[in-house]
């Protein structure tokens, strides 16, 4: 069944050949985030304005005097994407109303990493969602501060090694806290659209981008972005990892449309988390007990999600 689902999602030939995120960008070899950005840009089309937080994407796409962006793009700071998007959307609203420009349905999009979203940028994002600006926010979650050297964020999963949650003689787990559930924080704002996606499921991802664009009001998309450099895994398995994280139930793909939960891909049986963890050097130190702990947590969370899907 899982295999069937997958095949249904793999329809590369129907996707536009436009690359609004141009090659020549300097992302690491096998970067899952660059892949995700590429997919998002394919779905977004040309009639957009992108606001980018400081982070990997901004660095690898905009080294002066060159740019990878074929759509209007602005970067200012790390923690203010929500506010800058708000300003742009408001500017368009006011200028259209005052007859200074025509309404051509421009879509306003925010890009940030997990640190720029769930840590330092959370306040600005929360403000923008609460005020109800019409925008799509894409969090590219590579589960740590990768651009600056793999420091832990609140989005780093339990047990992962990072340079600021190292594995030492005394502290043997790495990250000691559970990953912050950012999509649920977005849901708590009662915005019309929240979804999770992985570029290993590109068609699903692009559908979600389009839905987020079409819906009036704030839309939040949380995109799993594999980082071979920071996760200590070979670059060629980027897509495989992004698939396994879904198949193990660690990062389920779902949508919350006007408060109603929908699972995008369901599995009668989840693969054991071990299959996902063992492929990455950042989890190498984990003991059987640690892995069991993670397994139990994943099952519990997955169950909770399924109850929400059924409950509505």
């Amino acid at each position: 069944m899982a295999q069937e689902q997958e095949e249904k999602l793999f329809l590369p030939r129907f996707i536009t050949t436009d690359e609004n995120f141009a090659p020549g960008h300097r992302a690491c070899i096998g970067c899952g985030e660059a892949l995700a950005v590429r997919h998002v840009c394919k779905a977004l089309g040309n009639n957009v304005i992108i606001v980018n937080a400081t982070g990997c994407i901004e660095i690898f796409s905009s080294l002066l005097p060159l740019t990878s962006w074929r759509v209007p793009w602005i970067h200012t700071l790390f923690e203010n994407v929500g506010a800058v998007v708000s300003g742009i959307e408001s500017a368009y609203k006011a200028r259209i109303r005052k007859g200074k420009i025509e309404d051509r349905g421009v879509v306003f999009v925010g890009f940030a990493g997990d640190g720029g979203t769930s840590d330092i940028g959370l306040q600005a994002l929360s403000g923008a969602m609460e005020r109800g600006h019409n925008f799509l926010y894409c969090c590219f979650d590579n589960e740590a501060y990768m651009n600056t050297g793999i420091q832990r964020s609140s989005s780093t999963p339990y047990g992962a090694w990072t340079t600021t949650a190292p594995v030492g003689k005394k502290s043997i787990v790495g990250q000691m806290t559970w990953k912050k559930n950012m999509p649920e924080i977005a849901v708590a704002h009662r915005i019309p659209y929240v979804a999770t996606a992985s570029p290993s499921f590109p068609f699903d991802l692009m559908d979600k981008v389009k839905r987020g664009m079409e819906i009036e009001g704030p839309a939040y998309l949380h995109i799993f972005s594999v980082c071979p450099t920071g996760w200590r895994c070979p670059p060629e398995i980027t897509v495989e990892i992004g698939r396994l994280v879904v198949e193990t139930g660690i990062f389920p793909l779902y949508e919350v449309i006007n408060g109603e939960y929908h699972l995008s891909v369901d599995f009668p049986e989840l693969k054991p988390v071990r299959e996902y963890l063992k492929k990455q050097g950042r989890f190498r130190h984990l003991t059987e007990k640690d892995i069991e702990r993670i397994q139990a947590r994943v099952e519990e969370e997955y169950q909770r999600l399924k109850e929400k899907v059924g409950g509505k």
Binding site: I49, V51, I74, T76, L77, E79, N80, G82, A83, V84, V85, S86, G87, I88, E89, S90, A91, Y92, A94, R95, K100, I101, Q123, A124, S126, G127, E130, R131
Partner: peptide, 22 residues
């Protein structure tokens, strides 16, 4: 009128709006 959640966002929203021509 964007009633933002901080001064940091106040100026950030101005930056966005100004870059959009407002």
């Amino acid at each position: 009128f964007i009633c933002v959640e901080s001064e940091h966002s106040a100026m950030s929203a101005c930056v966005g709006a100004s870059a959009a021509g407002a």
